[in-house]
C-alpha cells in the first residue's frame, strides 16, 4: 500500500467524507473509491452495500478476491448543556469514538477546567449549532432542562435529521416540551423521534450511570440502523 494512498484515506476521514479502500487480496493492489465514483467500478454493487451499512467486507470482483475496507464518517455527538452528566458523557464518548462537541451559553458551566479535552462552545445553540452542520451521522443530546436553551437546539436537530435525538426531563417536562414544539410547527411524527425520558431504562441514578444509559441508547440506534 502506497503512503500516498494512506494519506489520502486519512484526508477523506478527516473531512467526514465516505471512502472505501479496495484491495485485491492476491496482488495487494489497492485503490480508493468514493460514493460519487461508484459508477462503472467492477465492485460497484458490493461497494454500494458497504457504503450503506458502513461494514467492511470481502467480495469477488469477477474472479478476483477483493477486500472492501469502508470508512463512513465517524458518528458525532453534540451535547447541549455543560452539566454534570455531560462531564461523564464527554469522557465516555471518546472511548466509543464519538467525536464530541459541547454547547452551553452559560460561561460558568462551559469551562475548560470542567471539560478538559472536549470541544466547548460557550454560545447559544441557535448561533453555535448551524455552523457545525449536524447531519444524519450526528447524535444530538439536550441536557440543560432549560427550554430557552434546549428548544432552539432541538429545532435545529430535528430539521437536520440527526439519527439520534435525546432530551433530558421527566415525562411531565417532556409533555410540555412537545406542546411547545408542536406549536412551533413540528408534526407528531417528527416529535416521536425525540428519545425522552432520555437513555435506556437501566435504573440509572448517578450522572455517570445516566451517561452510560444515554450512550447505550445512542449505540443501539446506530447499530440497529446498520443491521436493517
Amino acid at each position: 500500500m502506497d503512503l500516498a494512498l494512506l494519506s489520502a484515506l486519512n484526508r477523506h476521514r478527516a473531512a467526514r467524507e465516505a471512502v472505501a479502500l479496495v484491495t485485491d487480496l492476491a496482488s495487494a493492489a489497492a485503490r480508493l473509491v468514493t460514493p460519487e465514483g461508484l459508477a462503472g467500478d467492477p465492485a460497484a454493487e458490493a461497494l454500494a452495500e458497504a457504503f450503506r451499512t458502513g461494514k467492511s467486507m470481502k467480495s469477488m470482483a469477477g474472479d478476483r478476491e477483493t477486500f472492501i475496507d469502508v470508512h463512513v464518517p465517524p458518528v458525532r455527538l453534540i451535547v447541549i448543556g455543560a452539566v454534570h452528566i455531560s462531564q461523564a458523557l464527554a469522557e465516555m464518548a471518546r472511548l466509543v469514538e464519538l467525536d464530541c462537541t459541547l454547547i452551553d451559553p452559560r460561561e460558568a458551566f462551559a469551562t475548560p477546567e470542567r471539560f478538559p479535552n472536549v470541544r466547548l462552545i460557550a454560545e447559544w445553540p441557535d448561533v453555535a449549532l448551524p455552523p457545525l452542520k449536524p447531519d444524519r451521522y450526528t447524535a444530538f443530546v439536550a441536557l440543560t432542562h432549560d427550554p430557552k436553551i434546549d428548544d432552539p437546539a432541538l429545532t435545529v436537530a430535528l430539521r437536520a435529521g440527526c439519527f439520534y435525538i435525546g432530551a433530558l426531563g421527566s415525562r411531565k417536562t417532556h409533555a410540555k416540551r412537545l406542546e411547545r414544539l408542536a406549536a412551533a410547527g413540528f408534526s407528531e411524527r417528527d416529535l416521536a423521534r425525540i428519545h425522552a425520558p432520555i437513555g435506556l431504562d437501566i435504573g440509572a441514578v448517578s450522572p455517570a450511570e445516566i451517561a452510560v444509559s444515554i450512550l447505550a441508547e445512542i449505540i443501539g440506534t446506530q447499530r440497529q440502523r446498520r443491521r436493517s
Binding site: 494512506l6 476521514r13 465517524p74
Partner: peptide
C-alpha cells in the same frame, strides 16, 4: 481509535520507519 491507528501508520512511515498495516 481507528483514526489514531491510521494516522499513526501515516506518521510512522513519514518519520522513515518501516510500517505494515
Amino acid at each position: 481509535t481507528e483514526t489514531e491507528i491510521l494516522a499513526t501508520a501515516e506518521a510512522w512511515r513519514k518519520a522513515g520507519r518501516g510500517v505494515a498495516l
